[in-house]
Simulated assay, not measured.
Amino acid sequence: MPPQATRVRPSRPALNLVSVAEAAALLDRSPRTVRHLAANGTIPAHRIGARTWAIDRASLDTYRHGGAAA
């Protein structure tokens, strides 16, 4: 019997997300400030549940270096 073909999924770009604590350390700000920036849309972030934010690292780096976070 010939071996069965395995199905290969197309690769997706890996999401590089950081927590509020990690973002605070990178920005040298408090976690409260980072949550405020995420809540008002200054830095792109996604809510995970009621209390957790996931922040895109690339957008955070752009914001950190003075660019407009996308």
Results as ranks from 00 to 15, higher is better:
3 P>V: 13
44 P>G: 00
9 R>Q: 04
40 N>Q: 10
60 L>R: 08
51 R>C: 11
11 S>Q: 08
61 D>K: 09
35 R>C: 04
55 I>C: 03
46 H>K: 15
44 P>L: 03
66 G>N: 12
7 R>N: 12
68 A>G: 06
21 A>G: 08
52 T>M: 03
14 A>T: 04
8 V>C: 10
44 P>H: 09
28 D>Q: 09
66 G>H: 08
12 R>A: 13
22 E>Q: 15
4 Q>D: 15
48 I>E: 10
12 R>W: 02
21 A>P: 00
44 P>C: 04
14 A>H: 14
29 R>Y: 09
40 N>K: 09
65 H>I: 03
35 R>L: 01
58 A>P: 03
49 G>V: 10
59 S>D: 11
46 H>W: 15
20 V>Q: 00
7 R>T: 13
64 R>T: 07
48 I>W: 13
44 P>K: 15
43 I>W: 02
54 A>W: 15
32 R>W: 03
19 S>I: 02
54 A>M: 15
9 R>D: 10
66 G>Y: 12
52 T>W: 01
32 R>S: 07
5 A>W: 04
54 A>C: 03
63 Y>Q: 06
52 T>V: 13
52 T>C: 12
41 G>W: 02
38 A>L: 08
10 P>V: 11
33 T>L: 00
49 G>P: 05
38 A>E: 07
36 H>W: 06
59 S>L: 00
45 A>R: 09
56 D>R: 02
29 R>A: 11
59 S>N: 15
14 A>N: 05
61 D>T: 11
33 T>D: 09
7 R>E: 08
42 T>F: 01
64 R>W: 03
15 L>F: 11
66 G>C: 09
20 V>Y: 00
8 V>W: 14
62 T>G: 06
69 A>T: 09
67 G>M: 02
45 A>D: 00
24 A>M: 06
27 L>G: 07
29 R>P: 04
37 L>Q: 08
31 P>N: 10
6 T>G: 07
43 I>C: 14
21 A>V: 03
4 Q>N: 14
42 T>P: 01
51 R>D: 09
47 R>H: 03
9 R>H: 13
67 G>I: 01
33 T>A: 13
12 R>S: 11
58 A>H: 12
25 A>F: 05
5 A>C: 07
30 S>A: 05
16 N>G: 00
41 G>I: 03
38 A>Q: 10
49 G>R: 10
43 I>V: 13
30 S>L: 08
23 A>N: 02
32 R>P: 00
11 S>Y: 10
55 I>K: 10
60 L>F: 14
16 N>L: 12
2 P>H: 14
13 P>R: 11
18 V>Y: 11
45 A>S: 13
19 S>Y: 00
6 T>R: 10
42 T>E: 13
39 A>F: 05
20 V>C: 08
50 A>L: 09
